[in-house]
Deep mutational scan, measured.
Amino acid sequence: GVTLFVALYDYEARTEDDLSFHKGEKFQILNSSEGDWWEARSLTTGETGYIPSNYVAPVDS
């Protein structure tokens, strides 16, 4: 299955590639091989962008 991640904090995008999000928003991670910045798709907005990996945690299934 796909592991979903949930935002622990609000984040405001600093570049066009970043994804702004709110605490509690859920994400599907598309690429986590880039280190501290993961490519993710928000399940709330459907938008794709980079998120700071230390702002999210796995959702307990």
Rank of each mutant, 00 (worst) to 15 (best):
G1T: 15
T3P: 05
T3R: 05
T3A: 05
L4R: 09
L4T: 15
L4I: 08
V6G: 04
V6W: 12
A7I: 00
L8N: 12
L8E: 11
Y9G: 12
Y9H: 15
D10P: 04
D10A: 13
Y11S: 04
Y11N: 05
Y11V: 02
E12M: 12
A13E: 05
A13V: 02
R14D: 08
R14P: 13
R14A: 05
T15R: 15
T15E: 12
T15F: 12
T15H: 15
D17V: 06
D18P: 01
D18C: 10
L19Y: 10
L19W: 05
S20Y: 02
S20F: 02
S20T: 05
S20D: 10
F21V: 04
H22D: 14
K23H: 04
K23Q: 03
G24R: 03
G24P: 01
E25L: 01
E25H: 04
K26R: 11
K26T: 05
K26Q: 08
F27E: 00
F27K: 00
F27S: 00
F27T: 01
Q28V: 08
I29L: 10
L30Y: 04
N31Y: 02
N31W: 02
S32Y: 02
S33Y: 11
G35N: 08
D36K: 11
D36S: 07
W37F: 14
W37M: 15
W38R: 07
W38S: 08
W38K: 09
W38D: 02
E39A: 05
A40H: 00
A40C: 05
R41D: 02
S42E: 10
L43W: 05
L43Q: 14
L43C: 13
T44H: 06
T44M: 08
T44F: 05
T44K: 11
T45W: 02
T45Q: 06
T45F: 02
T45E: 02
T45P: 00
G46Q: 12
G46S: 09
G46F: 10
E47V: 10
E47K: 15
T48M: 07
G49C: 01
G49L: 01
G49E: 00
I51F: 01
I51Q: 01
P52A: 05
P52E: 03
S53Q: 07
S53F: 08
S53V: 07
S53R: 15
N54K: 10
N54Q: 04
Y55T: 14
V56I: 06
V56E: 00
V56Y: 00
A57S: 11
P58S: 09
V59Y: 13
D60R: 03
D60Y: 04
